[in-house]
């Protein structure tokens, strides 16, 4: 009995986890900041101290702002589509009329999320191909010839095309999270709403949405962080091109560190990515807490 009150023992039991977290998460974050103060590359031992030079350079670097804008766009669209559409899809599949087919649709929508990103990237690269691609062919077939273009090769459409692929892949994943949350809502709530004569829309807005609020916050954080960490899709599909138009922070970090031999600059970008995701997550958590207390 006493054991549960003994703080010393509690600390002792938490120690391994704390050590792990400190060693593998907090320490690297600090180390990364330290590295960003030097000019160095991975294959030479020399390090030149440059202080905050890289931070000054970063805030003057036009590519950084392109990347930042692309990440913001990525996160924004992902939240709207994945969280918004994911929730709606989940609610529809949980409707009585659709429950029979739920397994089929659930699998279908979820399937893209389990395919390796490289495969998805190459697949969509082919779909977007201007000469043999499915998309342009489809547009031509329905008489929208003037909409055809070199999707990934045109700076205006390249970023949106990459983002679209990502929505295709992950909306189903977020949908599953919502399905689970909706299944936990007590059936009585819906029953009493029905007795009161609520239609599907009011049931959705007055019962489903408030009841899954926690999941909404979590999935918004997941997609937002995902939007700022995105790398693979861009790397596989466009490698940042054409020009720099699809550069995102992570691909710019990678390019700086592993191609341009500027590890210090890469560490600087990493610090900024961390700051952005950390601050926005804090804001979201705070906001959701405030909501609950009301």
């Amino acid at each position: 009995m006493n054991m549960y009150r003994n703080k010393k023992i509690a600390v002792f039991f938490m120690l391994p986890a704390v050590i792990f977290v400190v060693l593998f998460i907090y320490y690297p974050i600090i180390q990364n900041f330290f590295y960003s103060l030097f000019r160095w590359n991975s294959f030479s031992p020399d390090r030149v101290f440059v202080g905050l030079d890289y931070y000054r350079r970063l805030f003057k670097d036009p590519v950084f702002y392109i990347a930042l804008k692309n990440n913001a766009l990525y996160a924004f669209i992902s939240i709207i589509v994945q969280v918004g559409l994911g929730l709606v899809l989940a609610a529809i599949l949980e409707e009585k009329a659709f429950r029979k087919y739920q397994t089929f649709f659930r699998t279908t929508f979820f399937l893209p999320a389990v395919i390796s990103i490289t495969v998805v990237g190459l697949l969509w690269q082919l779909i977007y191909n201007p000469n043999i691609g499915l998309l342009n062919a489809a547009l031509k077939a329905i008489g929208l010839e003037n909409l055809t273009r070199a999707w990934l090769g045109d700076s205006k459409t390249a970023m949106l095309s990459v983002i679209a692929t990502s929505q295709w892949q992950y909306t189903g994943y977020i949908m599953i999270l919502f399905l689970i949350a909706i299944q936990k809502i007590p059936e009585e709530l819906y029953e009493s709403a029905m007795l009161d004569g609520a239609n599907a829309f009011s049931k959705f807005f007055y019962i489903t949405v408030p009841q899954v609020a926690d999941t909404i916050v979590v999935s918004m954080i997941i997609t937002m962080i995902g939007g700022f960490k995105v790398f693979d899709e861009v790397y596989v599909m466009t490698a940042g091109g054409p020009g720099r138009s699809t550069e995102v922070l992570a691909s710019y970090l990678y390019r700086s560190g592993f191609r341009n031999d500027e590890m210090g600059y890469a560490a600087t970008i990493a610090t900024i990515i961390f700051a952005i995701t950390f601050v926005t997550t804090l804001i979201q958590l705070k906001a959701s807490k405030a909501n609950k207390e009301e």
Binding site: D154, G241, G243, R244, N260
Partner: peptide, 20 residues
């Protein structure tokens, strides 16, 4: 030098797209 190449190469795409 890789840093020059990193400016030169992506710009070839911009050149062909007519953006630079």
């Amino acid at each position: 030098h890789i840093k020059i190449s990193d400016v030169y190469l992506p710009n070839l795409q911009e050149l062909l797209n007519g953006t630079k």
